[in-house]
Simulated assay, not measured.
Amino acid sequence: MFDNNKVYLGMSDVKVSFDELVLPKGVIARRAYAHFMSPHMVALESPTREKLAPSPWKTVRGSGDKIVHWELEVDLTQKPEGAEADDYVKTIVSLLRLGLSPQLHCFLISSVSFASKAEFNDSEPEVSLWETNRVLVLKGAYDELSQSTFGWIAENLERCMDLIYKHYELKLAVSSLDEVHFQQSLPMSLVLLWGALEAIFTKDKAELRFRVSVMISSYLEPDGGDKAYLLYKKVAKLYNERSKAAHGDNSVKQDTLLQTYELLYKAVEKIFEQNSVPTKESLERSLLG
């Protein structure tokens, strides 16, 4: 379906209160409904080079059951030069989860609009599962999204997308914030988030625990003082947990993951606000200022 100029993402878990909203870069959000049902079948013989697995195929209890509440139309001709189509789609969904609601779930992707019933029925749509079930589900502020809720996305989607594709460390951060929703292992999720923090805040490989902790603190609390010191102590403690997870300790608690998620979220939020990824020089100036 990525051979098409457009794809349609089936969005679930949060509804929209409007019929259609045009966003930058050829992205359109519109109300739609689809109930995706997939009964399970099992073949008990191996396929051969000549043919698929021979019958009988046995139907079994259980099914996949996904409901689409609205769709996102994505114009793939608008993707940055050199970007892969599937990566571009994932990045848009990641930004929507950051800017709208972490509850958003994109179960399905289609070659045809779910909202266009006549076109859907008269064509041969290709519909595939896109995202797996989430392990970490964070509650958003809204169960229904209005046009005003999309305000930040409408104003900043194009700018943030350009920034992401110009800076690998920011792209890693946005991707990491998204991947933890689907990661089965808490320790691996923690290492994932800290890998993104280190990419932004350690431009060389000096003693990492102190350097990354003090750089994050000076970036998020540039006025210094007690707030910066208390944040430094908190970050250093979280980094200790990251080190334990990286070395096979399975005692990581979910609260540690959530605190680290919040830390990276605040850093990404500030980067988008300033429209700039911090450099080694700017971090050192902030620290010594």
Rank of each mutant, 00 (worst) to 15 (best):
L208S: 08
P24T: 05
F36R: 10
L193P: 05
L104H: 00
S12V: 08
F107G: 11
R209C: 07
L72N: 01
T77L: 08
Y239E: 06
V27M: 13
T48R: 01
N250V: 03
H35D: 10
S38Q: 13
R209W: 08
R97D: 10
L157W: 11
I28F: 11
E20N: 08
F120M: 10
S63N: 13
S176F: 02
A85R: 04
Q147G: 15
C106V: 05
K51W: 13
G99D: 07
L52E: 05
E50P: 00
L136N: 14
E50S: 14
S128Y: 14
S46T: 05
E179I: 14
A228N: 14
F18R: 10
S101P: 03
E221I: 07
T260M: 11
K234N: 07
S175Y: 03
Y165H: 11
A173Q: 00
G151H: 04
A236C: 07
E45M: 12
V14R: 05
V212T: 10
S251H: 09
K6E: 12
K51A: 04
K253A: 02
M161L: 12
L257G: 15
T48W: 01
L283Q: 14
K139V: 15
L208G: 02
V68D: 05
S286G: 14
E20H: 03
W152Y: 15
K234Y: 05
K244D: 09
A32M: 08
P80I: 06
A228K: 14
R31E: 04
A154V: 06
I92S: 02
H40I: 06
E124N: 11
P39L: 01
L177R: 09
N133Q: 13
S251Q: 12
L163K: 10
L163Q: 08
S243K: 06
V174W: 08
N156P: 05
S101H: 02
L52D: 04
L263I: 06
D178Q: 11
K58Y: 13
T202R: 09
G26L: 12
L104R: 00
R30I: 04
I109R: 02
M215S: 15
L197W: 12
R134T: 12
N5I: 15
L208C: 06
R285I: 05
S113Y: 14
E45W: 09
V252A: 12
M11E: 00
V174F: 07
L129S: 12
Q274H: 08
K205D: 10
W194Q: 11
Y232S: 11
Y142V: 11
L138R: 12
D162R: 06
A141W: 04
A115F: 01
F36A: 07
M215E: 11
D86R: 02
D87F: 01
Y168C: 09
V180G: 03
G62Y: 05
M215H: 10
F201P: 00
Y265C: 02
W57D: 00
